[in-house]
Simulated scan of single mutants.
Amino acid sequence: MRALWPRLLAAALLAAFLLSPQSFAPVFAPLTHDGAPAIYNQASLLALALAHLRLVALATAASAVVAVSLGVLVTRRIGAEFMPLSRAIVNIGQTFPPVAVLAVAVPLVGFGEAPTLIALFVYGLLPIFENTIGGLQQTPAAVIDAARGAGMSPLQRLWQVELPLAAPQIFEGVRLSTVIAIGTATIGSTVAAKGLGEVIIAGLLSDNTAFVVQGGLVVGLMAVLVYDALSAGERALLRRIGLPAR
C-alpha cells in the first residue's frame, strides 16, 4: 500500500499541472530570465499531452499486432526459416535512430503525424517481437504434448495454450515498447506532429529552461504512470485467464 502512494501523488500532481498549469508558475519562475513566461502558453498542455499519448497508443498497437503476428509465424514450422530475416528486419528500428527514420519518412509521407507514427512503429517492433518469440519457445513441451493428446488442433493449441502461457513476456515487451515510444515521441515535434516535444523544443529555441524542464517532467511522469497502469492491467488480465500474476 505504501508503494502505491508515490504513484498516486505523482498522478495527482501531473493531473493538477495539466489542468491548471498557471498555478505552478511560481515553481518554474526561477528557471526563466528577462521576463520570459514560466509556463508554456502557445498551446494547451493537456491537449499536447493527450495528442502525445494518442501517437504512442496508435504506434504501439500497430507494433504489437505486427510483432506478435511475426513472432507467431517464425515459431511455427512453416515460418521457422524466416527467423533470421525477421530478426534482421525488426532490428532496423534499433539500428537506425528515430531521427533517421523521420528523415526518410518525411519525403515519402510529408510532415505531421504520419512520419512520427512510422518512426515509433519501427522503433517499437523489437521488444515485442523478441519477447513473443521467447515466450512461445519457453512453452513446456509436456504441455504441448498434453494439448495435442487432448485432440487440440494447432490453432487451438496456439490460442488456448501457447499464447496464454507466453502472455506475461509478450505484455512485458508491450510495456517496454510503450515507454520507449513515450520518450521517443518528443522528436515528432520536429516534423510538426502535436506532442510534448513542442514544449521542449520551444524551450531550447528560446533559451527558456522552464519550458524544457516542464516538458521533460511531464513526459517522464507519463512514462512511469503508463508503465504502472499497464502492469496493473496485465496482472488483472492474467488473473482473469487463470495465470499467476507477477
Rank of each mutant, 00 (worst) to 15 (best):
E234Q: 12
L13N: 08
I118G: 04
L117Y: 07
V226A: 04
A100T: 15
Q156Y: 05
S23L: 11
T60K: 11
R175L: 02
G151K: 14
T184I: 10
G203W: 09
R246G: 10
G188H: 01
M1E: 13
L4I: 15
F96N: 03
P127S: 00
G188V: 00
G195T: 11
P244I: 13
T75K: 14
G93T: 08
L117W: 02
G195I: 02
D207C: 01
V224D: 05
V109F: 01
M83H: 12
L230C: 03
L205A: 15
M222G: 08
G149N: 03
A100S: 12
R76S: 02
S206D: 05
A36M: 10
G151L: 06
V174M: 12
T139S: 09
P127Q: 09
H33A: 14
L53I: 08
L221F: 01
A47N: 14
I144A: 14
P127M: 10
L238P: 01
L50G: 02
V224A: 01
A181F: 00
L19M: 01
T132K: 12
P127Y: 09
G195R: 09
A29R: 15
T139N: 09
A57S: 07
F17Q: 10
A64E: 12
T132W: 04
G173Q: 01
T95S: 09
I133R: 15
S44Q: 08
V101A: 05
L102G: 01
I92K: 12
A49V: 06
F82G: 04
V74Q: 14
I182T: 00
L117S: 03
F28M: 02
E130N: 11
L221K: 05
A147V: 11
A43V: 05
I118D: 03
R239W: 05
W159Q: 09
A59D: 00
I200M: 04
E172F: 13
V27Q: 11
S23I: 04
A166D: 04
L237E: 10
I201W: 04
A47Q: 15
